[in-house]
């Protein structure tokens, strides 16, 4: 038993020696992204009308510096994915895509901000397929951390 204690003692000393690290501060915090405020857009299950222009708005923050964001709107006619919001939308029957809306745009946030409101005006063309769509926001900070959020929406005539 005495031996066991001695052994453990040795292990602890060596562990403590190795365990001490002279870490310089690194950024370990992801940026945040949210549509959960009054102007946040789109809200889950919302119906958007073709031909209209909408302002897609989300609030992003970071502890150090925000870098870029992106917005991806793609169809979910095959029900391949779902959003991360609390509400569950009723999906329309599955169907084949003919001319779906594909919106893929990236933007940078200039000026070393730690808080920013995304505000992108998107005009929905008149000739796109109506139905279930999926809208995904993404934001990065200067370190390379990323946060995402996605919302199920519908595009109607």
């Amino acid at each position: 038993m005495k031996f066991l204690v001695k052994n453990l003692f040795l292990v602890i000393i060596i562990t403590a020696f190795f365990g001490c690290s002279d870490d310089e501060n690194v950024d370990e915090t992801k940026p945040t992204i949210s549509i959960n405020y009054t102007e946040g857009f789109p809200k889950p299950c919302i119906e958007l009308v073709r031909g209209e222009t909408y302002n897609f708005r989300a609030q992003v923050t970071d502890n150090v510096e925000l870098a870029s964001y992106s917005l991806d709107i793609h169809h979910n006619f095959d029900h391949h994915t779902h959003d991360d919001q609390e509400a569950n939308c009723d999906l329309l029957p599955k169907k084949q895509a003919v001319n779906p809306l594909i919106y893929l745009e990236n933007f940078t946030i200039e000026g070393g901000l730690t808080s920013y409101e995304i505000n992108i005006a998107v005009t929905l063309p008149n000739d796109i397929d109506t139905g279930d769509y999926h809208c995904a926001y993404s934001v990065t900070d200067v370190t390379g951390w990323q946060s995402r959020t996605s919302i199920d929406i519908k595009i109607v005539e």
Partner: peptide, 25 residues
Amino acid sequence: NPTPNFYETLQIYEYTQTKVFRYGG
């Protein structure tokens, strides 16, 4: 390396070379 930039709304990860120091045992 995960960069702060996007390509078609996906985060760009780039192969990068850096100096690395390691010890242990």
